[in-house]
Design a protein around this nucleic acid. Structure first.
Lengths: 414, 414
DNA sequence: ACTCTTTATTTCGAGCGCCGAAAAAAATAG
DNA sequence: CTATTTTTTTCGGCGCTCGAAATAAAGAGT
């Protein structure tokens, strides 16, 4: 059942609209805001004055940008950098990264730590995260973060509280969000790394990826983030969207996840390496593969039609079959392939396209457009930061806790 | 960008909440409505009195249901049957059906017509629909329908305007909605039949299917309707969710859709029949198969481990592989298997479960609960009717076109 | 230097929809 | 016939948006 509405909802919504407009476009005058939000000047005036009082917005009188026209000059308004600080945490293979940004989204500080994630228990993970975040905050001279988003390779619960399973760490059912939340006293969300890539792409290229965005991570494992009709696709009880674990072949090759026949068991780096070296498809996959190993494999695959080429072909057909199946469900969607695996994409592409165009994806236009991004980390960080900022925006929009704006100005005077 | 809000939105929303409450529970008093909507008594009073004036609601003083307690008796309020009439149209294999219901959802009239759909051009379809709807409306003594929903086997565009492709009719890109809309002067939506099954199940069993609902139609072809996190899953540019056309085997058996390796090319009735009779997997599938044919096949499959059993096993593994892949994306969801194919579900079930539990679906709880429904038509009709009614509700909630409630009462007096 | 024009922003009063409290309505209990 | 109980309506107030008018702050013209 839908929820009832009241004037409170209207206020929140319109404040949110104003904040959203400013989050996109650096600074705007009140007049610009009227145009962007289609709110009346009076309303924009009221809302901005409230938000200015609350410290969420700041006027920028300094930069009068020349354009000297007649009439009263516009006053540029922007988000107030100091209103909040957000933290993004990225847990990837053998690396933990932390980024601190101000409320405008400007990166203030970034910090990495490399260690063997495979040996990491849940407990270890909590401690390492806490420590690294603390250092980063202190380096950035931030007392109190307002929101933390942690992007992990692996499956989280649907509410973004727990890390259920990760291919890169031993811990299971790690209550990351609750722990960090009590450590840092601010809302924490745990998200899938590929979802964050999709968020970033949507944010960076709304024209192309605004409505629909499929991010496929090709690396040691295979991950996916999907926006469909403008909303993040997630499972019923977990972050799901586990493209890499769609079933490619019943009783097929052994996957890192323990199941058999997953796409990843053919298309992950370890699977390609395994197949290229003629190892049995239930061999325990090598834990560590250098970028050099894979580049060598790719070079051989390009040179001659040997076992390497066949391994890449099988990988491509696993991916192509998965995409074809996915597109039977969603219709073709613009794709961003991300990660080190994109370096061998030239080998895979024709096979992938053959799978998709031979299938019924979309029924009529069985083609897809794609882009390649070699490095996933910047995208993940961008996505996590944006997600954290939007969470703060929501809180700011709902106003200073249950005090009317009038009360606030009274408090400020006192 | 989100849209701005105003008092108009609040009014619409709260009227919608009231209407939604009444659509569920036959009749309620104003006090009940307060509890159900969490609106204040004053607001409920105002809204119901407006809706009564507009003829959307009706008081039912007749049935004072005994429960003689002290105090002023409650006045039962319900949707006014005469406020609107909706039409549901179902196009299935060799049959066109029309149902007419009043605003409370009560079926007033139903009408079927059987003919060879395969021979049907787009033009034919438009004419037949129009004629059958006209007859049904006149039989039901309904002057003007308020909403028509047509459920078709096949793929529609994302907006529910056109029938893009259907396995049961020759026409392509048939502008069903626009045509019927101009014929009957009311909003028309074209929807996928399996989506309507999912709508119906959600409506009938909200406890089980309210949030997530997977309807799988097993019959000549394979269809699917999916609700995920309370919203209908649909493709980017079409109704999509074409479970039957997920890719099971690259370059595999020939499917009705023209592609190769679709799940349907193994699990549709025609595919099972083809395999059981040892025909090549690119044989043109028989167009007509009687229920008797399939029952015979199933009986033989149960009796001995011959070609029939193998055909059902292959079918089940195609479905199981598809479900495993789907559940990698969505986590396991309660399933309703619908249609004549459910008669052989006892043969398939173990193989389907083997596929799913061998895979990584959901990561941790690789099981699913399911229900069987032999007859799809009643569910499709129910879903289409509900969809049509909800469309009317939305219009009713937004109020008499741009007149305030005061204006309306003035008009009524005049 | 002063006034006029232009453009941006704020202020003011009205309207709409919700809510709480009080009043009114309509029954039963005594 | 009055008191009690429960439902429903009425009334006044509040919060939010909006349109119109007022104010603010510039450049342009004389």
């Amino acid at each position: 059942m839908q929820l009832k509405a009241g004037s409170d909802l209207v206020r929140r919504q319109n404040r949110a609209v104003v904040i959203a407009a400013l989050r996109r476009g650096a600074t705007m005058s009140r007049t610009d805001l009227c145009a962007a939000t289609s709110l009346s000047p009076s309303t924009v005036s009221a809302i901005t004055s409230d938000l200015l009082n609350e410290g969420a917005l700041a006027e920028q009188r300094e930069f009068e940008p020349a354009g000297s026209r007649r009439g009263r000059p516009q006053i540029a308004i922007g988000l107030a950098p100091a209103r909040a600080h957000v933290v993004s945490v990225e847990l990837t293979h053998n690396q933990l990264s932390v980024g601190v940004s101000d409320y405008t989204g400007k990166a203030i500080h970034e910090l990495d730590q490399r260690f063997s994630t495979a040996a990491c228990s849940g407990e270890d993970l909590l401690v390492r995260c806490t420590q690294l975040i603390r250092v980063a905050l202190s380096n950035a001279r931030v007392e109190q973060p307002s929101s933390i988003v942690m992007a992990v390779q692996g499956r989280t619960d649907a509410e973004g509280r727990d890390l259920l399973w990760s291919p890169i760490a031993a811990g299971r059912n790690v209550h990351l969000a609750d722990y960090l939340q009590s450590e840092f006293g601010c809302p924490v969300t745990v998200a899938n790394d590929c979802s964050m890539i999709a968020v970033a792409l949507r944010w960076l290229e709304p024209e192309r990826y605004g409505r629909d965005c499929l991010a496929v991570l090709l690396s040691h494992g295979i991950g996916m983030g999907l926006y469909l009709n403008g909303r993040l696709f997630a499972g019923r009880s977990s972050s799901a969207a586990e493209f890499g674990h769609m079933l490619y072949k019943h009783n097929g090759a052994l996957c890192r996840c323990g199941a058999r026949g997953c796409i990843e068991a053919y298309a992950g780096d370890y699977a390609i390496w395994r197949a290229a070296h003629g190892l049995p498809d239930d061999a325990l996959p090598p834990v560590e593969l250098s970028g050099l190993d894979m580049r060598t494999l790719a070079r051989r695959a390009r040179l001659s039609d040997g076992p390497e080429r066949r391994a890449y072909k099988e990988a491509a057909e696993a991916i192509g079959t998965g995409l074809a199946s996915l597109f039977a469900l969603t219709d073709p969607v613009p794709i961003a392939f991300v990660g080190s695996g994109t370096a061998a994409f030239d080998i895979c592409e024709p096979y992938i396209r053959a799978c998709i165009s031979g299938s019924n994806s979309g029924g009529f236009d069985a083609h897809f457009e794609h882009q390649l991004f070699e490095f996933e980390l910047p995208l993940i960080r961008q996505g996590a930061t944006v997600t954290a900022l939007l969470a703060v925006d929501e809180k700011v929009a709902s106003g200073p806790d249950h005090l009317s704006s009038r009360d606030v100005s009274i408090l400020e005077v006192a």
